[in-house]
Design a protein around this nucleic acid. Sequence first.
DNA 1: ATGAGTCTTGAGACTTTTTATCAAATGAGG
DNA 2: CCTCATTTGATAAAAAGTCTCAAGACTCAT
Lengths: 139, 139
Amino acid sequence: MENQELKKAGLKSTLPRLRILQLLEHSSQRHMSAEDIYKALLDIGEDVGLATVYRVLTQFETAGLVVRHHFENGLSVFELNEGQHHDHLLCIKCGKVVEFLDNFIEKQQCTIAQKYGFEITEHCLYIYGICPKCQIKTP
Amino acid sequence: MENQELKKAGLKSTLPRLRILQLLEHSSQRHMSAEDIYKALLDIGEDVGLATVYRVLTQFETAGLVVRHHFENGLSVFELNEGQHHDHLLCIKCGKVVEFLDNFIEKQQCTIAQKYGFEITEHCLYIYGICPKCQIKTP
DNA sequence: ATGAGTCTTGAGACTTTTTATCAAATGAGG
DNA sequence: CCTCATTTGATAAAAAGTCTCAAGACTCAT
Ligand SMILES: [Mn+2]
Ligand SMILES: [Mn+2]
Ligand SMILES: [Zn+2]
Ligand SMILES: [Zn+2]
């Protein structure tokens, strides 16, 4: 139960937190902004405050339950932290997101950090482009 | 003269545009936010409007004179476009920025895009970590 | 040089995203 | 259940960036 996940993360199990966690676990979109989550909850008749959504997402991030990304537009999006790091390939037309992990790139990043004496804490690689479907459509 | 650069870029040569371009060319910081640029200009007694700084930076970006980045905090920073693409290594303590280019990573990105059928338009790789100097300081 | 006419500027209003405040509601433990 | 610390939600405020429009600055052809 999500109840346990919250407790394990050191967070009291409250209704808004449960709803947000469940939404992230069951939504069809994997990457959602705070606004997206807020609206999705309103749509299914659960009314949380927007401030609570922002607050809870930050708490989830701190607790390691979710990961926050800054996609190009400057908007924060969140996704469930399922353990394995990955990077993103994004369609600039339709917003489609593909997740990938490339071990060669991961290793090479360590090499680069080492070369400059940096102790690496994290990284993100965003590749923007046009997805197969959007290449077909003639605008 | 910066005059010519502006004209080549299809922009009328005006005082605010010249000042901003000169600042970007001669500032000690290579990556600056709109606010940074605005304050730097006020500091040297040149008074431009903040709206103009934002506007001009966007025009410069469109004209290919500068490149815009979104560093982690969600703030836009700009740097002169000197032709060669590169990625960034950033210190989370002091804000130091190191630029690098790794041909292997660049190629691998194309391979990944191809694998998913994407037509790649651009990409950005940010590696965050702690720089050599900040590793020494005991906080 | 001068003036016409277009483009640009700057002040401030406005939008969007996110955070802070604080009284009221809630959940955990006894 | 009761208590009490935590959490919530409405709303105000901050932060970053964009829009508007009258006034000013450039360019180009005289
Ligand atoms: Mn992802
Ligand atoms: Mn750079
Ligand atoms: Zn697409
Ligand atoms: Zn540092």
